[in-house]
Design a protein around this nucleic acid. Structure first.
Lengths: 214, 214
DNA sequence: CGCATCTTTGAAACTTATCAATCAGAGTGG
DNA sequence: CCACTCTGATTGATAAGTTTCAAAGATGCG
């Protein structure tokens, strides 16, 4: 069954037996979200959580017309689990930033799985622990770093082999800055000789320097 | 046994049997931390987590001489569990802000308890889910609110019966502001008629107004 | 090629931080 | 009981960092 295969790709769920997975699959709901569409809104009751089978989703907060991205998920991943397990409401927005396929798993189904398979619970806990650490670091970055070091840290974090594709606007939303500021910091890093820019591809030229300003 | 009693006060641990608790108690280590002393430092290997039996502890990050409080714990509570369960290092500082008594529980002990008692695991998960939501809201506050609404939100959050004891310095560290700015915002709220101040006690005079600026 | 979109740059405005001085209150010791 | 000091809060002036607004440049796509 195709949905079972999708669930199996999620590291959290992969150790489940086929029968467990098909049980989940049978009561889960699959949905398509075109890029730009909203998956859930803050205040909405969290009756379950979401498995991202395909695509990319951003979780973000808004206030006074400003936006702060909390986290971007790429397939395979799951999200919305924290609100789901407290049994309360989602605290933030979830929006597809690419055409996405999502599987919704009702809380009750998953809790019964957790009760019969403690390893899954431990695994989920370790995922949540990692998310706590991630958010702790995000807080550090938002509160204690200046614009230049935020951008430097962003490049270091998202780089692959000394290179990365860079969307100014997206970076700005993640870093809690405006696109203009990000652009200026990029120019500064360029003039310092730390990076090189060609279109929307950034190449790290001086790793050590970048680490120093981070 | 006295330590068992202390452990029982932690909502997370209270459903455990006395034999489980005394097992934990027997391998845990109790320590006193005078106000101002450091409990753990970032980068330190997290071999377990901490139960706060008495006192008050702040978890915070530092960078370039600035400080951001992540969370303040008052007895009874536990902290350091996220890092402990990822098996990695603490991401932040923990410091007693009052004379504190702390029980250290090695990871291994607790994991074996979790394996034999799934309810504890679920409970711990729900605590971690709540902490995720808390941090999400902190991010929102740090990134999207201005100084005035941060202070207003702080008052609303910490008020009790329309009153609260206010330490400018502490609020500043939690809100990611300077004490001067906090003081100025307080004056502003006072001149708006939203609050009243007598020594370090703040009284809310106009709740609706306070909610509006939040 | 031309239009729409994103990026860069500049100037001004705004918010918050910094630095410095003063003030208020709580002990403390004479 | 009164200086005296210590700590924390307030206030003012100035500086720094970031945003905002506006315009000009690039880039990509139909």
């Amino acid at each position: 069954m195709e949905r079972v295969e999708a669930l199996k790709k999620i590291p959290l769920l992969s150790p489940l037996t086929d029968s467990q997975l098909s049980k989940i699959a049978s009561i889960s709901v699959e949905k398509l979200y075109p890029a730009g569409s909203v998956i859930f809104t803050p205040g909405e009751s969290a009756e379950g959580f979401y498995v991202l089978k395909k695509g990319k989703v951003k979780i973000f907060k808004t206030q006074r017309g400003k936006e702060q991205i909390i986290k971007i998920f790429s397939e395979p991943a799951f999200f919305g689990e924290a609100a789901s397990f407290t049994g309360g409401k989602f605290p933030a927005w979830a929006e597809a930033i690419e055409d996405s396929e999502v599987i919704f798993i009702p809380r009750s189904a998953f809790i019964s799985i957790m009760k019969e398979d403690p390893d899954i619970t431990l695994k989920l806990m370790s995922v949540m622990a990692n998310r706590l650490l991630y958010l702790t670091n995000l807080i550090e970055s938002l509160s204690l770093k200046n614009a230049l070091s935020k951008v430097a840290a962003y490049i270091l974090r998202n780089q692959n082999d000394g290179k990365l594709t860079f969307k100014t606007n997206l970076a700005a939303l993640e870093l809690g800055l405006t696109k203009e500021t990000v652009s200026r910091m990029l120019s500064k890093l360029k003039s310092m000789g730390a990076i090189e820019k060609d279109g929307n591809v950034i190449k790290i030229k001086n790793l050590q320097l970048l680490r120093e300003v981070e």
